[in-house]
Amino acid sequence: MDYYIAKTLQIPFAEVVTKVISALKDEGFGILSDIDVSATLKSKIDAEWRPYRILGACNPQLAYRALQAEDKIGVMLPCNVIVQERAAGDVEVAAVNPAAAMARVGNPVLPEIAETVRDKLSAVLERL
């Protein structure tokens, strides 16, 4: 089982970021964090990197259910979604596959929640 799900688009990077945030909202996710990796690397270590953003997405209802089932599951929250510019104008959107990550926890309640989150993140990618 892959640890991520992904889709590649050929539209401008900034437009993809906007579309991803909108699609996440449509699936009940909010953005808790937005890390501009390329800007951070430039300011901290003067390194150049292609446009790359990490969006920390959270669906409060599903996060609450997961926390009720396993109080340490917060180490796996929020669900990270990356948007990165690739070669030849391609922009890749990749999201964590929570089913792969949470399967290792061993709590029998988590797989159903993780599958629901994975389905919602897959729906986000389909909307793009």
Rank of each mutant, 00 (worst) to 15 (best):
E48A: 11
T18A: 15
R50F: 06
V81M: 03
I113S: 00
E27W: 10
A99R: 03
M1L: 11
D119N: 15
Q10N: 14
R50G: 06
K25D: 15
V124Q: 07
V109S: 09
A95P: 04
K42W: 08
D34G: 10
G74D: 09
A94S: 15
R127P: 03
K25P: 10
N107T: 10
A69V: 10
L41D: 09
P51S: 00
A87W: 03
L24P: 03
A100M: 07
V37P: 05
K42L: 12
G56M: 02
A101R: 00
D46G: 09
G56I: 02
R50H: 10
F29K: 00
G89K: 08
E15P: 04
M1H: 12
R118Q: 08
A114M: 05
Q61K: 15
E27I: 10
N80D: 13
I82Q: 05
I5T: 08
V83Y: 03
M76N: 10
G74Q: 06
L41I: 12
G56H: 01
D26N: 15
R65G: 05
E92R: 13
G28A: 04
C79A: 10
K19S: 13
I82M: 09
W49N: 00
L24V: 10
D90L: 14
V91W: 00
V109Q: 13
V91T: 01
I11V: 14
A123M: 08
V96I: 15
P98L: 02
K42A: 15
E48D: 15
L55V: 01
S22V: 12
L128C: 08
I31A: 07
L9Q: 04
Y64M: 06
Y4L: 09
M76K: 04
S122E: 14
Q84T: 10
K19C: 12
G106D: 03
V37G: 07
I54D: 03
W49C: 03
W49I: 01
K44A: 14
K7C: 07
D2T: 14
T40Y: 04
V17Y: 02
Y64D: 02
A99N: 05
T18M: 06
T8Q: 12
T40A: 09
P78F: 06
L62Y: 09
K44Y: 12
E115W: 05
Q10T: 12
V16T: 13
V16E: 06
N107A: 08
G30M: 05
T116Q: 14
F29V: 00
A88P: 01
E92N: 09
P51T: 00
I31W: 03
L125S: 09
T8V: 12
P60A: 07
I5E: 05
I82N: 02
L125P: 05
I113P: 00
N97I: 03
R53T: 08
D36M: 00
R86Y: 08
D2Q: 15
A87L: 06
E48R: 07
F13V: 11
Y3T: 11
N59G: 03
I11R: 14
A66C: 06
V75G: 09
G56P: 01
A14T: 13
T40M: 04
A14I: 07
V16D: 02
A101H: 05
D34W: 08
I31G: 02
E15G: 10
V16N: 02
V81R: 00
C58I: 06
V81D: 00
A23W: 04
R86W: 09
Y52Q: 01
D46N: 15
E85R: 04
